[in-house]
Design a binder for these strands. Sequence first.
DNA 1: TATGTATCGAGAATAATATATTGATATATA
DNA 2: TATATATCAATATATTATTCTCGATACATA
Lengths: 231, 231
Amino acid sequence: MNTELPKTVSEPTLKRLPLYHHFLKELLQREQEAVSCTDIGEELNLDPTQVRKDLEAAGISGRPRIGYATAAVVDGIERFLGWKKVSEAFLVGAGSMGSALLGYRKFEECGLKIVAAFDRDPAKVGRKIHGKHVLALDKLTDLAQRMHVLIGIITVPAVEAQAVADALVAGGVRAIWNFAPVRLRVPEHIIVHNEDLYCSLASLSQKLGQALEANPAEPVTARRLRTATLS
Amino acid sequence: MNTELPKTVSEPTLKRLPLYHHFLKELLQREQEAVSCTDIGEELNLDPTQVRKDLEAAGISGRPRIGYATAAVVDGIERFLGWKKVSEAFLVGAGSMGSALLGYRKFEECGLKIVAAFDRDPAKVGRKIHGKHVLALDKLTDLAQRMHVLIGIITVPAVEAQAVADALVAGGVRAIWNFAPVRLRVPEHIIVHNEDLYCSLASLSQKLGQALEANPAEPVTARRLRTATLS
DNA sequence: TATGTATCGAGAATAATATATTGATATATA
DNA sequence: TATATATCAATATATTATTCTCGATACATA
Ligand SMILES: NC(=O)c1ccc[n+]([C@@H]2O[C@H](COP(=O)([O-])OP(=O)(O)OC[C@H]3O[C@@H](n4cnc5c(N)ncnc54)[C@H](O)[C@@H]3O)[C@@H](O)[C@H]2O)c1
Ligand SMILES: NC(=O)c1ccc[n+]([C@@H]2O[C@H](COP(=O)([O-])OP(=O)(O)OC[C@H]3O[C@@H](n4cnc5c(N)ncnc54)[C@H](O)[C@@H]3O)[C@@H](O)[C@H]2O)c1
C-alpha cells in the first residue's frame, strides 16, 4: 500500500470517494470481503478506470485478479478524508435549515460533530435542538477560541452571513460551510464551501426545460433502468 | 443577441450562471445599467473570459467598450435556466429537511413552486407546513399524474427513497431532486440530481485535514481578504 | 504444470474545461 | 477627425479530468 499521498486531489474525485465508501459499507455488511473496480463502477455508473484512479489518489491499492479488500478501502477512504479523527463544529443560525443539520446523524459518521448552535433570537437561546444547546451569539467568538473549534456552519439569512463569518474567523475557525446564498469574504487561509442549493436547482430546471422542449410528453412506457448519475 | 442556443452547456457553467444572476440583481437595485465581465469576475473571483464564455453559452451578448446591459443579462439567465415559467413540484418526506425546503422562498424566484408535500406519517398528514398541505403518501402517484407535476423532491430516509422515486416516476414526474444518500434507479429519460450534503462535507474535511497538517496553528493575524471560491 | 482469465497498475490518448492571446468595435477625448 | 482605451468576440493554448490500452500478476482450472 502506497503511503505517499499526492498533495492535491481533484474536487470530482473528492466527491466520488464518499460514494464508494457508502457502497462498500453495504458490501461489508453482506460480508463481501473483496471488490473490484468493475463492481463499484457498475453500481455507481462510473468507468472502472475512474474508480481505480480515485482509489489510487486516496492511497489505496489492490491486487490483480483479486480486487480490493473491502474493509481496507473503507478504512483508507475514511482515513484519507479525515473521517477518523472527529472535528468539532459550531452551527450558527438555528432556523429551519440549521435545525435539520443539527439532527443529521450521518455527519458524525463523517467525522463532523456539531457541538453547539448559536442564534441571535433570544427565544431560541437556552433551548436544545436535537440534543444540542443553542447559545447566545455574543459567546460565539470567545467559545470557538477556547474550545479550539475549527469548523463553522452558517445557516443564517444571507444579509447576516458575512458578519457571522467574521465572528467565526475571529474565533479561529479554519473552515466554513456556508449555506447562505452569498460569497463570503474571508482571509486567504480559510477554507470555504458554499452549499448553494439554488444553484444546484438551476441545473436541474435547465435540463428539465431542455428535455421538455425536445420531448414534451415522454411516455411513461420507456422502462430501461439505469443508475442515476452524479449530481 | 444570439437566439441560437447550443444544445448542451457544461455543468460548471450551469452552476455559475445563478451566481452571476444573484450579483446582477444587486447591481440592478443599485441602478447600475451596464456591467463588464471584468466587474463580474472580480466580484466572484473568476476569470473574466470564463464569465464571457458562460454568458455566451446562455445566449447573451454584450457590446464592446460598453459591457452587458445588466437587465438583459438577468433576463437572459432567467430565460435560459427556465426560471421564467414556473414548474410545480411535489416534496416527499415532510421531516426536518423537507420542512426547511418547504419554507425556502428563494426557490420560487428560480421557478420552482412546491405545491404540496407528502408523508407516510399519519400525524403529519392533513397539517400544513409553511403554508403547504401535507398529503397522504398513497395519493402521490395519482395526483402527480392529474396535476401534471414534473418535479419531485425526495427528503425521506435513505431506505425509503427508491420506493418514493418509483412512485414519482409512475406519476409522470420527469425530474427528481434527491436529498437521500442513495443512487436511485430510474428510467433513462428521468433527470436526477443528487444533493449529497455529506459528499460535499467530505471535501471540506479532507482539505481541512491537509491544511492542518501543513500548518497546525495558523495565526489569526493573516488578514488578506479574498472572495471565497466556488463550492 | 500449463493455460486462461479477471484484475490491477501505469502510462498514453482523448475529451472537457479554463485561461491567454489577438483582433474588432464603440466610445471618449484631444 | 484622429487617437487611445475598455471591452466584447473569436481563436489558440494550457490545464485538468476521463477514458483507453496494454503489460504484469495472481488465481482457477484442465
Ligand atoms: N430553508 C432552506 O431550505 C434553505 C435552503 C438553502 C439555503 N438556505 C439558506 O440558509 C439560511 C437559513 O435559512 P432558514 O430557512 O433556516 O432561515 P430561518 O429564518 O428559518 O433561520 C435563520 C435563523 O438564523 C437566526 N439568525 C438571524 N441572524 C442571525 C445572526 N446574525 N446570528 C445568529 N443567528 C441569526 C434567526 O434567529 C433564525 O433562527 C439562509 O441564508 C437561506 O438562504 C435555506
Ligand atoms: N436532516 C439533514 O440535515 C439532512 C441532510 C442531508 C440529507 N438528509 C437526508 O434527507 C432525508 C430526510 O432527512 P430528515 O432529517 O428530514 O429525516 P426526518 O426523519 O426528519 O424526515 C423524514 C420524513 O419522511 C417521512 N417518511 C418516511 N418514509 C416515508 C415514505 N415512504 N413516504 C413518505 N414519507 C416518508 C417520515 O414520516 C418523516 O416525516 C434522509 O434521507 C437524509 O439522509 C438530511
